[in-house]
Amino acid sequence: MLIAFNKPMNVLSQFTSEGGWPGLADYIDIPKVYAAGRLDRDSEGLLLLTDNGKLQARIASPKAKLPKTYLVQVEGAPDEAALSALKQGVMLKDGRTRPAKVRAVPAPDLWPRTPPVRVRKTVPDSWIELTITEGKNRQVRRMCATVGCPCLRLVRWRIGSWSLEGLAPGEWRQMPENNRKN
């Protein structure tokens, strides 16, 4: 079984609640499924859960290099140098990231975030689509900050060819495990 879940902001990627933050059990009442990877509490979007250990390992393993695509609202507007640096890979404290696919995109038609992103009148914001093939801790946020465009909102949209398409925050649906593109 494979489940696609649209994890809302401020929900933990574990079944137990902790520190006043809700866990996955508040949304998914299916026994013996486990998250294949994680999303930080302050990130939103696609979280895959499965009862298949081999599939879980394939999705979560950095060795599989499964592409993960994020829609990222950043402070400022990344110039060509910033986008080029992300494409080549940037140096973080724990090493250089693999090259990423990145492009500036118009503001996507997403659900309202709770709480809303704090907007500063004197600083513009913009959106990028960023695809990585690894998963270092808070990697997308750190990559964006490294090129001078701090992350304001982070939504994972796709893992391989599994997508968040059509799922509202807090909703889930069963997905086919065998996806030819994965």
Rank of each mutant, 00 (worst) to 15 (best):
residue 5 F to S: 02
residue 32 K to A: 15
residue 30 I to W: 07
residue 93 K to H: 01
residue 92 L to W: 06
residue 8 P to Q: 06
residue 177 E to M: 13
residue 108 P to I: 08
residue 134 E to D: 09
residue 29 D to E: 15
residue 54 K to N: 12
residue 144 C to T: 05
residue 112 P to E: 07
residue 7 K to I: 13
residue 159 I to T: 05
residue 8 P to G: 04
residue 107 A to N: 01
residue 11 V to Y: 10
residue 87 K to L: 13
residue 177 E to W: 01
residue 59 I to H: 01
residue 124 P to S: 11
residue 156 R to E: 03
residue 48 L to V: 04
residue 143 M to V: 00
residue 137 N to Y: 15
residue 117 V to Q: 04
residue 65 K to H: 11
residue 51 D to I: 07
residue 53 G to Q: 07
residue 151 C to A: 14
residue 43 S to A: 14
residue 105 V to S: 10
residue 5 F to I: 03
residue 46 L to G: 01
residue 173 R to P: 09
residue 52 N to I: 06
residue 161 S to H: 12
residue 64 A to M: 09
residue 168 A to Q: 12
residue 163 S to N: 10
residue 105 V to D: 08
residue 115 P to V: 11
residue 169 P to I: 08
residue 90 V to A: 06
residue 179 N to L: 14
residue 98 R to Y: 11
residue 85 A to K: 14
residue 158 R to D: 08
residue 126 S to Q: 04
residue 50 T to K: 05
residue 30 I to D: 07
residue 54 K to V: 08
residue 54 K to Y: 02
residue 167 L to Q: 03
residue 125 D to P: 00
residue 106 P to Q: 06
residue 90 V to P: 00
residue 144 C to H: 00
residue 156 R to F: 09
residue 158 R to Q: 15
residue 72 V to G: 10
residue 145 A to R: 14
residue 73 Q to V: 00
residue 48 L to I: 08
residue 149 C to V: 06
residue 122 T to S: 14
residue 162 W to T: 03
residue 40 D to S: 10
residue 123 V to Y: 05
residue 58 R to A: 14
residue 104 A to V: 15
residue 20 G to D: 12
residue 150 P to D: 05
residue 113 R to S: 10
residue 30 I to S: 06
residue 63 K to E: 12
residue 125 D to L: 03
residue 103 R to T: 14
residue 42 D to P: 00
residue 138 R to T: 07
residue 10 N to M: 08
residue 71 L to R: 01
residue 25 A to F: 08
residue 119 V to H: 15
residue 77 A to N: 08
residue 103 R to L: 12
residue 122 T to N: 12
residue 43 S to M: 06
residue 20 G to L: 09
residue 25 A to E: 14
residue 53 G to W: 06
residue 174 Q to A: 10
residue 51 D to G: 12
residue 151 C to Q: 11
residue 153 R to N: 03
residue 1 M to G: 13
